[in-house]
């Protein structure tokens, strides 16, 4: 089992989390694409990216930076803290 260091929680197994996918902010304007394309399309190519991770036992959301080819995790921040600044 993979263990990851989380702020507030400490070291937790990855099985306690549900991954919500890549952070994909709503664009101000849909640049030549239909709403359906923005809703569904993903650029699922191997890359280092920031994802939503939900910790089921505590119901906390985190932002986790991970590489989707190697599964290496580079760090996690509490979503509330990141948004409140």
């Amino acid at each position: 089992m993979k263990y990851i260091d989380f702020p507030t929680l400490g070291r937790r197994p990855s099985s306690e989390f549900v991954v919500g996918g890549i952070i994909d902010p709503e664009p101000a304007e849909l640049d030549g694409i239909s709403p359906g394309e923005w809703v569904f399309n993903r650029d699922s190519i191997p890359m280092r990216r920031t994802e939503w991770w939900y910790h089921t036992p505590t119901q906390l959301w985190f932002l986790v930076e991970r590489h989707t080819a190697t599964d290496e995790v580079f760090g996690a921040t509490l979503a509330g803290a990141a948004i409140d600044g």
């Binding site: 099985s15 549900v18 991954v19 996918g21 699922s44 190519i45 191997p46 994802e51 989707t68 599964d71």
Partner: peptide, 12 residues
């Protein structure tokens, strides 16, 4: 449970 571009298999 998560997106991954890899063919490794796991004990889990």
């Amino acid at each position: 449970p998560m997106e991954l571009h890899s063919r490794r298999s796991t004990f889990e």
